[in-house]
Design a protein around this nucleic acid. Sequence first.
DNA 1: CGCACATGAGACATTGATGTCTCATGCAAG
DNA 2: CTTGCATGAGACATCAATGTCTCATGTGCG
Lengths: 198, 198
Amino acid sequence: MSHVRYSRRMAVDRDQVLRSAAALLTRKSTATMDEVAKAAGISRATLHRQFAGRDALVRALEALCIAECEAALAAARPDEGPATDAVRRLVAHIEPNAPLIAFLYTENQLFEGEEQNEGWARIDERVAALFTRGQAGGEFRIDLTPAWLTEALYGLLASAAWAVAEGRVAPKDFTHMIVELLLGGVLRQDDPAPRKES
Amino acid sequence: MSHVRYSRRMAVDRDQVLRSAAALLTRKSTATMDEVAKAAGISRATLHRQFAGRDALVRALEALCIAECEAALAAARPDEGPATDAVRRLVAHIEPNAPLIAFLYTENQLFEGEEQNEGWARIDERVAALFTRGQAGGEFRIDLTPAWLTEALYGLLASAAWAVAEGRVAPKDFTHMIVELLLGGVLRQDDPAPRKES
DNA sequence: CGCACATGAGACATTGATGTCTCATGCAAG
DNA sequence: CTTGCATGAGACATCAATGTCTCATGTGCG
């Protein structure tokens, strides 16, 4: 399906390597370049020719993740219809990338001082905008900041991905668990009189 | 204030070392033994005499965190009163440990195959029991499993700790953000559609 | 066929952290 | 004072991962 030729011969399918690296690293975040290479079915030398180093590999994974998240964001049409439904669509579309997000989420802690890819800022902005829209439209409560809700969404995605990987929750419940908790919370809404404010 | 003597002389205050190690590692999770030692104001040799290695240090931090979480759990009296209030108390009491929990949460990913401290299982059990109680009592919705809720609570704690550390949210909102999102979710409960009579 | 070139295999140096060791120092107890 | 002992400083070996390099190989292409 893909006919990528760089000069004359087909080089290693870079995208394929990235995919398998993602699959491995989401399971074993400390995998060495050697293991990544083996998992991709190539030699360490070739892996190193494609990605200057582990750092570059992670950056490439980050770029891949950002691209897919932006695609998911676009597919979710966050500006259309009720914000509630938009959130559902967003989570549903992002779900496949949750493991990779979880990996990068923890990996970013290690980068310490280094500047992070501005792609995340763009995504954060759009997600936060969705929450803001929901608040402005009266669908969402206004005492939780969009920044926190965005942050919490990432956290829930990562937690869920981790919990699924550990076998603590069923994969099929993934979207439902996140969306329902995020939107509705733990409380039953019908029976008891919900109160708020203090 | 503390007069701990191990043999004849005061050895380094082990607990003090642990605290400063926690403070450092929650900020820079990749800090070396050297940095940890410096942060604690002792030499690497002494640090190494107290904790056989980085691994042992992390394990000790884990034990400390577990102990404090169990103390928080006890102080929150999860079996008394409405489950809703118990959750509020729990989060409030656990809050000080959130950064350490976040650190260990990500650190655990690295441990890969190794068995994890059974202390977490005990805590998980009790937290899950609280959610179960809330469900049984009709306070909480029943379509989200206690296991997932427990997992989600950890995730939110970690996310919030991280967000605070990054300066993206105000520290004073910590408990409120977590509790309100976990309990009530994002949706406004009063105004719009959902049929509820108050 | 013969060339070009990407690849695989592996040697090698480098780096950073770790763990171990020794020794001098300082301090408190006897 | 003298002794015992924990400490600080640092040398040192080790280890794992990384990055770089060379070389043989195989295969597509002209």
